[in-house]
Design a protein around this nucleic acid. Structure first.
Lengths: 362, 362
DNA sequence: TGGTCCCGAGAAAACGTTTGCCCACCCCAG
DNA sequence: CTGGGGTGGGCAAACGTTTTCTCGGGACCA
């Protein structure tokens, strides 16, 4: 990734004159010092709390800084402290409610730590991840990476050698970075067992992307329960990739299939929502003729028709924990120990698998 | 907002020793210069494209920079250029799909301009907005503000005096900043006219927050159509605030109302979704007994049961345009001319207002 | 051939902050 | 009265980059 300087000039007019007037800077530490009749060093120490000195001076300096609206220049500071006070959030793609929730958790933690967030959301593959990380290099003290798939190990490893890294979504122990993972197996298992307990026998599953470890884990756990189920139970898989379109295609493929299914498990709520919609259009009653379950428990899931049985994932909590872990790594300055934290999931049983819709607002 | 230095130490242990090992920095410009046998000045000029000089030297420097993986220290650079290459995105709150879509548009544009995004999402009122802006002061070249309500004018005005500002969601001409606004009036008007054309006569509206200009505009436009409708048409308003909970409360209040309604317009899709759910639980058929319409056209809207008639808002495009406007301001260095750009909306007619559900995937 | 101009590239200052080192002062004890 | 320890606070270097000023050399024209 060759270095490319920031381009404020619009792409359609690369020859435009460089902007002449940079923004006005506020008061500097020298201004505060002069105003108080002390040296810049003293101001710096007081404002950073390292100074146990004269309370009078301290009060005066703080008051002056406040009055002048002084905010230290973060660039100058990071130049000497070698810390930026910011963390890079590298997201594969910003789709749907999942990432709003996730970001909310992250923002919450970072906000109270006084840490800033550099967010990028445009990596779909390892190479773009590398580019995104390179772009914010030097501006951040660490990376929070939501894995774009399971092929990114090499990139993550090389990033983790330079800065603290926390990975969400894949097991990155081999990369030397702590990982946080959703307990997909428990969730998918619970769905499968619930389906069988409810008497459903011919199961369909709409899978997620092959490269997504969450998706694979959900699929495998679902398969595993099927493998030890009674022989009259069948399981058929239809390929999806978590997107709306793929859900639509998979649901229609399922309906065209010669086998009559009585249950469909979509590996995320987005696809489950679409499945519900397709089934309704086809005149199939849920849950009587067919049970439907999803995964994620998006805020909307309980308000669908019928309310969607799904695996609850504490998404915001996931973001929060990931952020705490990352901050912890940065504090220790250690090159991010390997570890895996499993985020528990629970099955939220609603109207798409049990007839009584009175439980609408479970 | 008193200055508070970044706190990497976890809040529960404020006395922890300061982190001893700052992250290792990569190669500096001096390293590249030494490696090539030229001066740092030359490297700087070449890498920034200001150098039309000797192609041999240029090629050598570029190759070396690439080989060493040199990335300039953004702090040092911003110290002298007085630009940071980053923009601050100040969001009121990260809820639902709306902001994922919005952020996607923003990220898209900034990414291709090589500009970084500092995202904050924790301001619910003007004072918090001021604090959020102060926190990133000096780290950004401009602000993209999604208004937390219509009381923020004073804060926005003072921000706009210092840095380029673009505002989304309120008319900030008085603040000296360009604004982008959704054409709420057109959308709400279209809904009202559609409802009346479909023969609905007793309309209910679930409003948004009083402090939100979008919400107010939608309400007023809907009222206006009612005002010039035939006398047998009634309109009753129920207070909401765009949240799921408020939608639930408003829908139930509506059902308890002595008047029998045959149409409900929720001022955003989140509340409309809840309304659909509540009506289903109450055994009211949509659209036969009651029509439902929302606003925003979230990606999920067309997959609800029945598919939701709603006002389509090009959310991603909104983010994209806002970002382009902001970048334009920063480029010109001008203190952000006042202007208002209106983002057009269109009515998406679906099954929640017209019986034929065959149009499911319109 | 001599003068002029241009172009490539280096030296050095400046940006705002932190921090190690040092000094001066004060207080207290001997 | 003097010496020592402790403390408040100043000086100056350093961080990595851009940019202005400068100079040397080569080309071109008369």
């Amino acid at each position: 990734m060759p270095y490319r300087p920031p381009q404020y000039t619009p792409a359609d007019n690369p020859t435009a004159a460089p902007p002449p007037i940079p923004h006005a800077l506020g008061p500097t530490i020298t201004d505060v010092a002069r105003e108080c009749g002390v040296s810049a060093a003293t101001v710096s120490r007081i404002l950073n709390g390292q100074h146990r000195g004269d309370p009078t001076t301290r009060g005066r300096v703080q008051a002056t800084a406040l009055r002048l609206g002084y905010v230290p220049h973060s660039g100058a500071r990071s130049l000497v402290t070698r810390r930026t006070g910011a963390l890079g959030i590298l997201l594969p793609d910003l789709f749907g409610e999942f990432f709003s929730e996730f970001l909310r958790g992250i923002d919450d933690v970072s906000h109270e730590a006084g840490i800033h967030l550099l967010v990028t959301s445009t990596h779909a593959d390892p190479e773009q991840l590398r580019a995104a990380a390179a772009a914010v290099r030097g501006r951040v003290d660490g990376y929070l990476i939501v894995a774009p798939g399971n092929r990114a190990n090499a990139v993550i490893t090389s990033l983790a050698e330079q800065l603290p890294v926390v990975v969400v979504g894949i097991d990155a122990r081999a990369c030397g970075a702590p990982s946080l993972m959703i307990d997909n197996a428990a969730g998918a298992t619970a769905v499968a067992e619930h389906a069988l307990a409810r008497g459903y026998r011919h199961l369909a599953m709409i899978t997620g992307p092959e490269t997504n470890e969450d998706a694979v884990a959900r699929r495998d756990a679902f398969r595993a329960v099927f493998a030890r189920a009674e022989p009259d139970v069948t399981l058929t898989e239809f390929a999806g990739d978590f997107s709306q379109d793929s859900g639509w295609n998979a649901a229609h493929t399922m309906l065209a299939h010669p086998r009559r299914f009585d249950f469909v498990f979509a590996c995320n709520d987005t696809m489950a929502t679409i499945a519900l919609s397709v089934l309704r259009d086809a005149g199939i009653r849920v849950p009587e003729n067919m049970g439907v379950a999803g995964f994620d428990d998006l805020p909307m899931a309980r308000f669908l028709t019928p309310p969607l049985t799904t695996v609850h994932v504490p998404i915001e909590e996931l973001g929060r924990r990931a952020m705490r872990t990352l901050i912890d790594c940065v504090v220790r300055g250690a090159p991010s120990r390997s570890s895996v934290e499993l985020i528990p999931t629970t099955l939220a049983i609603r109207g798409s698998t049990v007839p009584d819709t009175r439980r609408a607002r479970s």
